[in-house]
């Protein structure tokens, strides 16, 4: 595993993603999702909204990192809020 050059931040990053996937799966097992139409132009399931949230989070982080000098934590905060909004009303 040495060649994979792990660092603590990336390990935490992948750990959190794995955890989120487990949580989403358990949630799905406990109460299965229904496809519905929110403010997004397409009807989505919970998993779809989760994916859209993750993808836009990646773009939010890139935009903040690349084109502003704002803190990365701000990007994270915005992404989390956006994810919650998506999951609730998307």
């Amino acid at each position: 595993m040495d060649w994979m050059v792990w660092t603590l931040p990336t390990a935490i990053f992948f750990g959190v993603i794995a955890l989120l996937l487990v949580v989403m799966t358990t949630w799905e097992l406990v109460s299965p999702t229904r496809e519905r139409r929110g403010f997004l132009p397409i009807s989505t399931t919970r998993g779809d909204r989760f994916f859209i949230g993750m993808l836009s989070a990646a773009y939010i982080h890139l935009a903040v990192v690349g084109f502003t000098s704002l803190s990365l934590w701000l990007a994270l905060g915005v992404s989390v809020v956006w994810m919650l909004v998506l999951l609730r009303w998307g």
Binding site: T25, E28, L29, T45, G47, D48, F51
Partner: peptide, 9 residues
């Protein structure tokens, strides 16, 4: 099955 669409994507 759970996650089938996402797995396919």
């Amino acid at each position: 099955f759970i996650g089938d669409k996402h797995l396919f994507f």
